[in-house]
Design a protein around this nucleic acid. Structure first.
Lengths: 212, 212
DNA sequence: AAATGTGAAGAGGTTCACAGCG
DNA sequence: CGCTGTGAACCTCTTCACATTT
């Protein structure tokens, strides 16, 4: 037995690919390109995406290409931003402020203007109470006290694997609807919560598999 | 048009999933479990993997389950380690030793005994010449001088997007066969090179897409 | 003429269900 | 009897090819 997630409910949308389109289109905008064909876009995206694939993907979002011409870049960027949820700002809570948490926070601060670190938690006494770019580092024990008022939508977990599941559950109970997990552990959370896990060891093993 | 990678050449193997099995089986070993059924394993793995899926995957590696009993954990761990290339040690070169590079190096140093940082490169004058756990930080300009003798199999790229493609090409020319890329850019490299890209912005956009 | 949008065909991967074996 | 191993059915996603529209 061992039945799993519903096999139905296909989203019909492929967010990773849509994001690639979005980025390629932003590049096009910077180049001053105002119209792209699906072939142009496939070339920019690279990464094994065919023009037919792109047309199919975009057709699911509605129909705003001009036959014989191509797609209006500005309109398409806006549409993709809307679909991806990148047409607004997001507040993020980071739990675990070691090297990795610090690195991620710094990256977001300088590179991603849509994402803002609004809450930071750790267990290290020497960190708690310090400030990082104006954000106070709180103790993880105070999560339920501090987090609910901060209006975060997304949580990033960079704690040890053994603590990840508990932290994730607490984040969800505080109302977060999406979690980006860097701990090498499989999180079991309610269906409604969006979860992405980035597992360095797994990625490396994929590479070593190829090399073997 | 715009033809891409060969559609054939299905690997018939799914490394990410095999890695999950490997990790779950190591957990089982620690628990003292010496035999698991595909149902047991599915339960441990979680993450929407069915027992039928597991049996199918494992059957591609050969046939060493015992009907009526299950799989011998030790034998299976060993077999998976072999297939994944985790039965040996790997030397890694890191290019870009800012917050992120530092965080990844530290994580690997303390958590992953199979992976060793053997080379570190950066462009910052104040970093070049310093040592990290005995490894000298070299200037990126000296990559071709330093890297070839260090016998690295894998490169990790944590440089800005604008520099990523050039760095990747230089790594490949120095003989690296696998690259883990953290820069938000699509790398175009020879077919034979294994590439995995971890794109924080992309992961976040997948989450915001769900939240929207 | 040129490029989109899309039904149909094709591949690839997952689940089913049961024969086979310990 | 229990669980593996596996062909067949199934389903999802990709590619093809062309009618359609500007």
């Amino acid at each position: 037995m061992s039945r799993r997630r519903k096999p139905s409910n296909s989203s019909l949308l492929n967010p990773p690919r849509l994001f690639l389109y979005h980025r390629a289109l932003e590049d096009a905008l910077r180049d001053g390109t105002s119209v792209v064909t699906s072939d142009d876009l496939a070339l920019r995206v690279g990464r094994g995406v065919s023009s037919a694939q792109i047309r199919k993907d975009l057709s699911h979002l509605g129909t705003f290409g001009r036959r014989g011409q191509g797609y209006d870049v500005i309109m398409l960027v806006k549409r993709l931003a809307r679909v991806l949820g990148l047409d607004r700002d997001w507040r993020i809570a980071i739990v675990g402020f070691g090297f990795l948490g610090h690195a991620l926070a710094t990256f977001l601060e300088y590179r991603e203007e849509k994402f803002h670190i609004a809450a930071i938690f750790d267990v290290a006494k020497e960190l708690v109470g310090t400030r990082w770019h104006g954000v106070r580092v709180s103790h993880v024990d105070d999560l339920e006290k501090v987090l609910p008022v901060l209006e975060c939508g997304i949580g990033i977990i960079t704690v040890p694997a053994s603590a990840a599941q508990a932290v994730a559950q607490r984040l969800v109970r505080c109302g977060l609807g999406a979690i980006l997990n860097f701990a090498p552990a499989t999180l079991r959370l309610p269906e409604r919560v969006a979860v992405r896990s980035i597992d360095l060891a797994s990625e490396l093993s994929i590479l070593t598999h190829h090399l073997s």
